[in-house]
Amino acid sequence: MIETAVQSPNSMSQQVTDQGTHLPTVAPTEVPAFKVQNLSIWYGQKQAINDVTIDIPSKTITAIIGPSGCGKSTFLRCLNRMHELMPHTRVEGKVLFQGEDLYGAGVDPAAVRRRVGMVFQKSNPFPTMSIAENVTVGLKLNGLRKRSLLDERLEKSLRMAALWDEVKDDLKKPGMSLSGGQQQRLCIARAIAVEPEVVLMDEPASALDPIATMKIEELIGVLKSNYTIVIVTHNMQQASRVSDKTAFFYVGKLIEFNDTKTLFSQPKEKKTEDYITGRFG
């Protein structure tokens, strides 16, 4: 990912060049990062996502809201094929990522996940690794060995994750020695160290206190300039604070998708209005 990628059309690394800067030819507002068409997902007999069609724009923050069990997490995970780790999953429909079918034959899920990173609800640094190792592990997995480059990426990622100043003298300490909020920012640093094009966030602040949550939200706003961000949250205030676009899911269906301001001020659907005004959920 970090080395110069061969620029062949339709290759999974098409959009990334040296140092991961994005090609200027991609006009972020015009080409959506994800084009999801008639997507349905089943876990065994249970249908979790029901015929969802949505375009997620790139270099923006898209929030996904909805009551528990509405399939928002499942939807997020299908964007980097993480839901496949559960047994007996079945997918129908299409997910086009930068024009390529994510579920096409011969697409390696590991390659997808290198380009579409993820941050989880609970921070999960690797406990046997130091802070520095936690950030660089993804780069090492991708064959990057050059010390100077690793150090450079380490500092850059930690700075972007707004963690550098707090840990720069303790890089050798274990990742688990940090506080909960710091651990979550470490996980964000780990996710962005490999320079993905998209960062998926599954309720990244739901286990954190208000101050740590505020820091994460600030961070998300900063990351927007470089990454497409899709964030699942059950916190509507959070969605309205951080996101540009908001999608409302209810029992596996996409009910409404619009600019965040519009969706919260003038919802078109009755269900959306009921939910954002707290009538259910």
Binding site: N80, M82, L85, A110, A111, V112, R113, R114, R115, G117, M118, F120, K122, N124, P125, F126, V137, G138, L141, N142, C187, R190, A191, V194
Partner: peptide
């Protein structure tokens, strides 16, 4: 969660 962390890095 540990496995997922690694999977998510590709």
């Amino acid at each position: 969660l540990q496995r997922e962390a690694a999977y998510a890095l590709g």
